[in-house]
Design a protein around this nucleic acid. Sequence first.
DNA 1: CGAGGGGTTGACGCCGATCAAAGCTGGTGG
DNA 2: CCACCAGCTTTGATCGGCGTCAACCCCTCG
Lengths: 243, 243
Amino acid sequence: MNKELDKTVCTNVEWVGRAHCDRCHIRRLMFFSELPDSAFEHLLQPVDQFIHAAGSTIFEAGTRKKFIYSIRRGMVKLVHTAEDGTNRIVRLIGPGSAIGLELLDGADSYHHSAIAINQVDLCKIPVPTVEQLESEYPELYQHVVQQLQDQLDLADQWIVALGAGTAKQRVAQLLLVLDKFFAENNDEFILLSREDMAAMIGIAVETVSRMIAEFKRQKILYKTDNNLYTCNTAELLKIAQQD
Amino acid sequence: MNKELDKTVCTNVEWVGRAHCDRCHIRRLMFFSELPDSAFEHLLQPVDQFIHAAGSTIFEAGTRKKFIYSIRRGMVKLVHTAEDGTNRIVRLIGPGSAIGLELLDGADSYHHSAIAINQVDLCKIPVPTVEQLESEYPELYQHVVQQLQDQLDLADQWIVALGAGTAKQRVAQLLLVLDKFFAENNDEFILLSREDMAAMIGIAVETVSRMIAEFKRQKILYKTDNNLYTCNTAELLKIAQQD
DNA sequence: CGAGGGGTTGACGCCGATCAAAGCTGGTGG
DNA sequence: CCACCAGCTTTGATCGGCGTCAACCCCTCG
């Protein structure tokens, strides 16, 4: 695979302000969805809101911080970097999901690196605050369980869909995943860099490029805007599953 | 991949008896490890213990049962079967781990099929019983979270180690995984069928066979007993990571 | 304007899928 | 007890897909 060492990593982060969960207008999507407003009156440590620029690192694998992050907007990749510098994207995380949950479970450092793909808007929640709220409101456990189960399903889907088949099938599957990922808003989705796509499905960058180019030529993949695309899902499904 | 339809599935199951969790001598390994003995006095529905023969199905994906299973002994494979009959092994589960946890989270059917690899000894726990105990003893949530997090880590490891690299590297990684899986007892481990190994790492059966044969010839993999093997982990690591 | 990064395309060689056939093993029944 | 068979494993031969190296294009930014 590709063995590029980290180029200068952009870590452009902007502090938006203290989060006021009791007044959050998307709270039902977020990590504290089940809690009553009163839960936030005496937090051990405050929750802060940040905006990360595209490409900036949210946290790095192995570092011993004590925060989990709930994604409000944008798309995050979880990356595993091997000793030899090879890195593999293990999961894509979007709005409403949380990352760094391994810290809630005795882990003393993050298991992956988390990097913003586009501009990401998130809440940074201290672990002690989560633990405090868990003890006061056991229903929060339900939410953690839900989050973990969802991510486990994602990981399994990753193994099944993106880890087998020919290069063309995998790219088709990947496009379907991206399409579904953005489905809430509209049919359009952001096409990732070829390098990211290659790191997701474990094939060479050039091969990804060839397949994408072929799909474009066959009008299975249309460009609608700058790097917004639409795809013919029926056709992609056929390709992904043939033989 | 291989598209064999289900041959006659062996479902040889033997009921061992009612489980008495309060007297279980391996309870600290099991699903109810944190609970006091008194917790089991008034269970909504009883916990039963079973022995599954090698190859027998514990549950099938999509079926609407209401039980989770805690593995006492043996090895279980979680299998995803695609529409075209292709099946892929998504995870290996061993003693102390639980399967079917998706039911605790609103899922109305199992996400995978679970099949015993060798003889498996397990406890069959009704979901209502778990929910009852969860409400009485919130610390049980911690254990569920732990289980899910462990399985998520396994899935990620699967993606990283078994989903990339050459066929030789993947087989080497797989042997290392098997070795670690059995590490508690001794160095020896059971070598799976070529078909299972192929379904884990997404390559052809014949290729797996070739690689295994090559490792045997190079004395990196020794047969010690019937189908018990030992491996030279240092050498395998070198192979798995080279370039 | 040049430099640099990402994307596309071409040429080539090797890895691994596929098809085919031949050991090997355990189980079954005569 | 042996013959036979079915299923698994091994090995060989062939061919296509894809990784690799390399050149070129396009766009952005200094």
